[in-house]
Nucleic acid binder design. Sequence first.
DNA 1: CGATTAACCTGGAAGC
DNA 2: TGCTTCCAGGTTAATC
Length: 288
Amino acid sequence: MPELPEVEIVRRGLAPAMEGAVFSSVETRRPDLRFPLPQKFRDRLQGTRVDALRRRGKYLIADLGSGESLIMHLGMTGRFTVSKAAGTVRPGDFYRADPGDPAHDHVSFVMRKRRLESRIDYNDPRRFGFMDLERTNGLDNSRHLAGMGPEPLGPDFTPQSLNAALSGRSAPIKAALLDQAVVAGLGNIYVCEALFRAKISPRRQAYNVSAAKSALLHETIREVLAEAIEAGGSTLRDFAASDGAPGFFQDRFQVYGREKEPCPSCGAPIGRLVQSGRSTFYCGKCQR
DNA sequence: CGATTAACCTGGAAGC
DNA sequence: TGCTTCCAGGTTAATC
């Protein structure tokens, strides 16, 4: 579920509980998620302060006072929920909207900032998510972040940089945009939406996207991501902000999940095809 | 080297 | 109702 907008919504929800707070308790209920949890995971977190919680593509990164960073990825079904810690709550305060299946609460943190305690639960049924610890220094070259493309909402993502990244590639533009090395943070939904807005066929080979179309695509990528963040992300099945609130951008999808419905631009039925094993939704008439 | 596919894992929806 | 099959927001190791 989580592409860049959803991860950004999660970051904004976790930041008040995590930034400036210390891990007072770390509980793991299994040794691994997608990968084994790092060695001495609890020891390296407990008592450590979080200086900042940031996002890089679909990754969440908590920079710690210890000189390490906690890297978190939500995979497909990862979800963080923030609630007040047991013990500090008053009766009726312990409200956790839609907690999901507790069988999949794999990691829990208790964060303490002065006298305020927050409980953070990580729930992930499919366990495609992971957590890792790396030195903050040189993090951009760590195994998870090395080779990652520019942040689409940042200054390094320009019409020229996108055009250059696409120029050497013969893969379909759909596949190229899913490659995190081209631009960070896009997933299946927002690639479909951005290509529709730019009226580019998902089948077109990346190097055949003209400079003018690259510039338009650059604009539609930023536009669709910014609008999605503004709407609180997209909730298809199980995405929710860390306070349990759903997103609303799914109501504004123009093509994603709308096979056979009329194209909002020309009225022709929306098509679906499978590219690199994933569904692509598009308008065969508008997108060339 | 770049591109495509299979696999990781579970749950929900659709089909029979 | 119950069983089977298909599909899902992501990444990556293996194969072409």
